[in-house]
Design a binder for these strands. Structure first.
Length: 579
RNA sequence: CGGAGCGUAGCUCAGCCUGGCUAGAGCACUUGCUUUGGGAGCAAGACGUCGCAGGUUCGAAUCCUGUCGCUCCGACCA
């Protein structure tokens, strides 16, 4: 491709809207342009990268035996009601109406559609295992689109769904995808690793996320150095907080003391009260299925919403409002506690975090604004319905399995594999006749890769101060030729010849035939990050040489006559390295 | 949705507080000349409903009200 014939609108200045580096580079290198918040047009260069990522995904899915299909984007809401996710996902679903005022949803994912297909077409254990995948646009009504392609209203995803006759089969299908994912990200030049994950709204009981370490990532991952444990912070557990909970009783019964104006853990920890956060009980009230639930964590701990969902058995819950809380407990947030609950709160469930087990001599709200209770011994004073793990782990805590200290790192999620079991096959009647003559729901798995996500993650991980450094496997072009001369010059003639020569060898070449100054061409070359660049200038050409400059590497001189050969070989070896 | 901020040329921004004269700069764009190894120089030029709608005023980019949009922090996610 000739630069002068395509559209590569590079930007010298950083657009104000782009917060993180990969988003800035996406815009500056002329890969995408924003239509409006969360919606992007892929320009020629960006589309080429996208297609390459897609192709790698496709090859590895095919290699793993998955079958490519294409499902409708527009879906009937009925199947969502049938699976029970219409309400669970309600806020994230784009809904549209047709001329008859009938409602449709724009698919954020396709479990319901594929399961409906399987219900009709897969009727025997002999037809399994099967794994169907597609690569296409998904819609999600994000509360706040941001970070370019990372959190968009519309994004491209590869989604796959496996159907098995047995649980063992489903595990094998899962493993196959897990391994395929590792290959996909490695081929994209990404350093990605798998972590145990929460299953959230998708459901199921076993799940891994593929993470790309990055400070700008939206996820936090807890891991140990031996790599024997890694989990999303939403899922991670430990042997407990570093500072143990006090278990020494300080009094025969809880005693109220005045704390006017104190409504936070920090305020109670400060003078004049000086109650350390580790000695406090934090009382959180959630509204779950129309009733309130009390959740207790230690004062210095953070409740973990994903774990709470597991505890409640539903993802549909929210923090109760101050009014709802006052009506039930007679006090406002900041003065709440689970000791001596009033009549209207007696029957509410109390979930207490394991870190509080056996705690004594603690302090909590008195359910009276401006007062707290001290000498609280949990076993004696609080009716705990259930002990649960609902706290967020912190760095330095010890791994449950190996006792190593946990480290925490931010990361970008690029893929997610789930073992679903019968969550969808059951309600959507995707049953089959087993070998033993029994009719059973098939055992499913689902597997997603954020393709646009992956593209941006590559940029986030592969760049320097001058711009992007594409891995050869996903680079928009493999080679950039930079002649430093105007049209009609010797350098331009040689550039044209090399261009034709490389194309003849099947290399993807971009020729910077613009009538621009060298500085402009060099800056743009670094910015768009084509892995290999051939520079043709008059000085070197006089010696019969051309410049060979890998992006981010050292400059070499090549005999002009052998340039095409050597460059083609280098492309091949780089590709082989990422195969 | 809660909190904060911003809407002035394609982009980055100044001007607003303290209302006033033809609304500015840099980059990008057009034309010409010069220049040609790391984002050139000179000259000429084009580009603005100052987000939108009301209001105050002799007079509004500037003050007030409303509204829309965007960005950031929080909750959500591939």
């Amino acid at each position: 491709m000739r630069w002068s014939h395509t559209l590569i609108p590079t930007l010298k200045e950083t657009p104000a809207e782009a917060e993180i580096l990969s988003h800035q580079l996406l815009l500056r290198a002329g890969l995408v342009r924003k239509l409006t918040g969360g919606l992007y047009t892929f320009l020629p260069l960006g589309l080429r990268v996208l297609r390459k990522v897609e192709q790698i995904v496709r090859e590895e899915m095919d290699r793993a035996g998955a079958l490519e299909v294409s499902m409708p984007t527009l879906q009937p809401p009925e199947i969502w009601q049938q699976s029970g996710r219409y309400d669970a996902l309600a806020d994230a679903l784009y809904k549209v109406r047709d001329r008859a005022r009938k409602e449709w949803v724009l698919g954020p994912t396709h479990e319901e559609v594929i399961t409906t297909l399987a219900a009709g077409e897969i009727n025997s254990y002999r037809q399994m295992p099967r794994n169907f995948y597609q690569i296409g646009v998904k819609f999600r009504d994000e509360i706040r689109p941001r970070f370019g392609l990372m959190r968009a209203k519309e994004f491209i995803m590869k989604d796959a769904y496996s159907f098995d006759a047995t649980d063992e089969g489903a595990m094998a299908s899962y493993r196959l995808m897990y391994d395929a994912y590792a290959r996909i990200f490695s081929r994209c030049g990404l350093r990605a690793f798998a972590v145990e994950a929460d299953t959230g709204i998708i459901g199921g009981n076993y799940s891994h996320e593929f993470m790309v370490p990055a400070e700008t990532g939206e996820n936090e991952v807890a891991y140990v150095d031996s790599a024997s444990y890694a989990a999303n912070i939403e899922k991670a557990s430990s042997r407990g907080p570093i500072v143990p909970t006090s278990k020494t009783s300080t009094g025969p019964a809880p005693e109220a003391f005045p704390t006017p104006g104190v409504f936070t853990i920090d305020a109670l920890a400060a003078p004049p009260h000086n109650v350390p956060a580790v000695q406090q009980i934090k009382t959180l009230i959630y509204l779950v299925n129309g009733t309130l639930a009390l959740c207790l964590v230690r004062g210095d701990d953070q409740a973990n919403e994903a774990k709470l969902a597991g505890c409640f058995g539903t993802t549909i819950f929210r923090a109760a409002t101050a009014d709802e809380i006052f009506a039930a407990l007679g006090a406002h947030p900041g003065s709440l506690g689970a000791v001596r609950l009033g009549p209207s709160a007696q029957k509410l469930p109390v979930y207490a975090d394991e870190a509080l087990r056996g705690g004594a001599g603690l302090v909590t709200g008195a359910n009276e604004d401006g007062a707290h209770l001290r000498h609280v011994d949990i076993d004696r004073d609080i009716r705990v319905s259930r002990w649960v793990d609902i706290r967020t782990v912190r760095a330095g805590e010890l791994s449950v399995a190996t006792g190593e200290p946990l480290k925490i790192q931010r990361a970008i999620e690029v893929g997610h594999v789930f073992k679903l079991g019968e969550k969808y096959s059951q309600p959507l009647n995707a049953t089959f006749l087993a070998e033993d003559g029994q009719r059973r729901p098939s055992v499913m798995g689902c597997y997603g890769i954020g393709v646009t996500h992956t593209m941006q993650a590559v940029i986030e991980q592969s760049n320097d101060k001058d711009g992007i450094r594409w891995p050869m496997s996903v680079a928009p072009y493999q080679v950039l030729i930079t002649p430093l001369g105007v049209a009609g010059s010797e350098t331009m003639k040689l550039a044209e010849q090399l261009y034709a020569d490389l194309i003849g060898r099947g290399i993807e070449v971009l020729l910077d035939d613009r009538d621009d100054r060298p500085g402009v061409k060099f800056k743009d070359a670094d910015l768009i990050g084509i892995p290999l660049r051939v520079g043709i200038g008059e000085k070197s050409l006089a010696k019969g040489e051309v410049e060979f400059k890998p992006r981010g590497g050292a400059l070499e001189m090549l005999p002009a006559g052998q340039a095409a050969d050597l460059v083609a070989k280098r492309v091949a070896s780089e590709l082989a390295r990422l195969a």
